[in-house]
């Protein structure tokens, strides 16, 4: 397997952040985002490279990344749907959306905590983009148009 190298731009960003924070642990999330934005998931090789750069054990990155719902450890071609499970969405029938989304096998579904869009609940993020005031019909249309996602 080939290795993983952080882009020059990212390395520059890491240097900048190292100076900004009192401890290098603070760089864990930024560096995880760098890898995920680059590869679409967190590969073991990339995490090992990150652990070399920050001189922290690989286990630390796994531990932190697995705490959050937005990080993925496997590459997936499927559409990534993050459905809010917090109060406002719940009150506006997000459970119904969940039952519907569960039946679709062309998407990767995660239930997440509040995404800060309560005024337009129920909502979800599809491949990182917010879709608000949803119902099953609207969701179906959005997911049907794969090119627009």
């Amino acid at each position: 397997m080939s290795g993983y190298t952080f882009s020059a731009e990212n390395l520059k960003e890491i240097d900048k952040l190292l100076k900004r924070y009192p401890s290098k642990e603070a760089l864990t999330l930024p560096i995880l985002w760098m890898v995920q934005n680059d590869l679409g998931y967190l590969s073991n090789i990339a995490l090992r490279e990150a652990s070399k750069i920050l001189d922290m054990p690989t286990s630390h990155f796994y531990s932190v990344a697995s705490f959050y719902t937005m990080f993925k450890f496997k590459k997936s071609e499927k559409v990534f749907v993050e459905l809010c499970k917090s109060l406002s969405c719940e009150l506006n029938n997000s459970d119904e959306l969940y039952e519907y989304l569960k039946t679709r096998d062309d998407i990767e579904l995660v239930r997440v905590e509040c995404l800060g869009s309560c005024g337009s609940s129920p909502m979800c993020a599809i491949n990182g983009k917010y879709h608000e005031n949803l119902n099953i019909k609207k969701l179906d249309t959005i997911l049907g148009d794969k090119d627009a996602l």
């Binding site: 054990p57 286990s59 705490f67």
Partner: peptide, 21 residues
């Protein structure tokens, strides 16, 4: 040697070996 790690969050967290170790 950092072989063990806590994965996941809250009620679902569990101890396991670091992936690939």
């Amino acid at each position: 040697t950092d072989e063990l790690v806590v994965m996941g969050r809250g009620n679902d967290s569990y101890i396991t070996t670091t992936p690939f170790m």
